[in-house]
């Protein structure tokens, strides 16, 4: 059974919540069971933002993730806060342009990707989250690139659809790392 419990965390404004939405939507397009749960506490205001995304071949029991199979982090505090919730053998994908802290855990697989720098080089730093998702997809196969692209069409408002080709490029970049 394929099941991914993914926690994405960072600062508000980094596209944390929308990355989760794209992911969940793509899972749904593949007829998988999905849920997306944002942190909606006071911490949303200027502080950290995070969301829990479950993608599974069986109905999602709880949308709340206690044990994450993957953690994607885009700031230092989130790594400190959430690294202990990753299961043994799980993944931690880090935007190393923004996070200098080292992962303490020795029993997980860690990928440090300078996503923000790469995205900036592409001309739009907001694609950093997509580059990190690319790594997740390549590593886990939880969704396909095509579903991701299809999902973008659903999640992004029409006026932002012009960004889709670049976002797909960013995804590919992340997948190739």
């Amino acid at each position: 059974m394929i099941k991914q419990d993914i926690v994405i965390a960072g600062f508000g404004g980094q596209g944390i919540l929308s990355a989760g939405k794209v992911l969940a939507n793509a899972g749904m397009l593949e007829d998988k069971y999905v849920s997306w749960l944002p942190s909606y506490g006071p911490e949303m205001r200027g502080g950290t933002a995070n969301c829990h995304v479950v993608i599974s071949e069986e109905p999602v029991a709880s949308p709340i993730i206690n044990d994450a199979t993957t953690l994607i982090v885009m700031n230092g505090p989130s790594l400190e806060k959430f690294e202990d919730m990753v299961v043994e053998g799980g993944l931690i994908i880090i935007d190393s342009s923004l996070v200098e802290t080292e992962v303490k855990r020795k029993d997980v697989e860690v990928f440090r990707i300078p996503a923000s720098k790469m995205a900036d080089d592409m001309g739009n730093v907001t694609y950093a989250n997509i580059i990190l998702l690319g790594k997740l997809i390549a590593k886990t196969g939880i969704i396909s690139k095509d579903s991701f692209e299809e999902s973008l069409k659903k999640v992004l408002p029409a006026k932002k659809h012009y960004m889709i080709p670049e976002e797909v490029e960013a995804l590919k970049m992340g997948m190739s790392l």
């Binding site: 939405k21 969940a24 749904m28 069971y33 999905v34 849920s35 997306w36 749960l37 944002p38 909606y40 999602v60 949308p63 709340i64």
Partner: peptide
């Protein structure tokens, strides 16, 4: 509750 209200599901 907030979980149900805030979460997205198909």
């Amino acid at each position: 509750d907030g979980i149900l209200g805030q979460m997205m599901e198909p």
